[in-house]
Every structure is written in structure tokens, then in C-alpha cells.
Computed example of a mutant assay.
Amino acid sequence: MTNDTSKTNAPKTNASTTADRRPQWLELIVALVSAVLIYGAGIVLLGIFPAPTAALEGVAGLFFSGAAPILVFTIVVLVRMRDLSAFGVRRVEPRWLLIAVLLAAACFAVIVTFDTVVQHLFPGVDDSQDTLRAAASGGVLALIGTIFFGAVLTPLGEELVFRGILTRFFERWGSWAAIVLSTLIFAVFHGINLVLPSALLVGLVNGWLMVRTKSVWPGVVVHIVYNSAFLILYSFG
């Protein structure tokens, strides 16, 4: 009687291989510690060396909001060098990028309507976006910096961290757990203020896109289009 070793020696399935490659607890802890140190240092530096104008303050803040998560993501990747597809940095079908643009437009319409209603019901309510408005309306150079840092660098950095690391990590507990948990963290990260509904909506959409496509790029597109629309709107004062 011969031993059948085909089962014990069989390679892992695609599903189990994918699960093994996604971010683990080590990456999550490194991301948390790195974020605390980097954001803490950034806040201190911005406090010690304040910008001379509100417009420059806004541009500097947007640069930091994009550079910081990219640095966090880089540190996490270097912990255990692996294929970046483990973090959702992978190609996606072009149709998903078109879907992302349409979803971004829908999110923009919903939040503009929400903000209009809130401003009508509570005139003069602070939406904590004064520095962004100052940057976007601070002249051509300030607007270029605002668009690049706020609508390109920041979306890229935040999607790599919140979807590429967090959503992928939380997928071990199921798709909806991944979407909801990463969305809540993303929303709270943006502050308990009038921006919260916006962050919740975009977080839910991008979390769903991440789970559905296994790629960060649709979420990056949503984020770029959404942020661009608001920054251009702010440029009109």
C-alpha cells in the first residue's frame, strides 16, 4: 500500500496565499508607531515654524498630509519586503477607474448638498476648512501647490495607508468588517467636525472599491477627483 502525499504536499490555494501575503499584525503595529512619531513631529515643526500667511499655511499642511502617510507606508513596506500587490498596489480593469470617477462625482454632489443644508440650518457653522480655502484662493502658485499636494499627493498617501494597509489587514474578519473599521478610523483621523460625514462617505466608497477590486487605484481616483472638485470650488472664495 503506497502513501498518497498529493494532499499534504499540495500547494496552497490562491485564497490562502493571498491571506498570508496581506498586512499582518507586525505591519499594523509598525504603521501605528510610525504614524504617531511622524505626525507628532510634523505638528511640532509646523507649530515651531509657522507659515507667514494663511495660504502658505494651507499649502504646507497639505504637503504634510500627503508626505506623512507615504512615509508611513514606505516604512511598513520595508519591514518585510514583499510584492506591493499585498497592499493593493496592483493593476485594475480600466472600467473600475471610470466607475471611480462616477462615484466621486456622486459623493461630491451628496456632500455639497449636505453642506448647503447644514449652512442653511446653522448659519456660520465652522467647517474647519478655512486654511484650505485660503490656500486655494491665494494666487496661481498657491493654487497649483494646493491641487498637487491636496488632490494628488494626499489621496495617494491616504489610500496607501487606510486602504492598502488597514482595509487589507481587517479583511481577515470579513469584507464588511474591513470596510467599516477602516472607514471609521479614516473618518476619526479627519477630526470630529463637519468634515466627518465627507470622510465617512468617501471611506465607505473606497473601502468597498478596495474589497471589490483588491486594488488601491480606484480609491485613489475617487479621492483625487473628489478633493480636486472641492479645492477648485474653494478657489472661487
Rank of each mutant, 00 (worst) to 15 (best):
D130I: 06
I99M: 10
L181C: 05
G40M: 10
G40P: 08
S34T: 07
G88M: 04
P218L: 07
T5F: 15
L71A: 15
I147P: 04
R163N: 12
N193A: 08
F186A: 05
S215R: 05
A60T: 13
K7A: 13
H120F: 07
A178Q: 10
L102C: 05
I38R: 12
G58M: 09
Q119L: 10
V202A: 12
T131G: 04
A134N: 04
T74H: 03
I48T: 13
I111G: 05
P155L: 04
L102H: 01
S215M: 04
A67D: 01
I29Y: 13
I48M: 15
A15L: 15
D4M: 05
F169T: 11
V77T: 05
A86Q: 09
T154E: 13
L102Y: 00
F230N: 05
P52W: 03
A100N: 03
L143S: 09
R133P: 03
T154G: 02
S215F: 06
G157L: 05
L141V: 12
C107D: 15
A19W: 10
A51L: 01
D126N: 14
D126F: 08
W208I: 14
A151S: 14
R91E: 10
V79H: 10
R168P: 03
L121S: 10
F148M: 07
L141D: 08
L201A: 04
V89K: 13
R212G: 00
N227W: 08
S198L: 13
F169Q: 07
I185D: 07
L103G: 08
L78N: 04
G157I: 10
I38G: 06
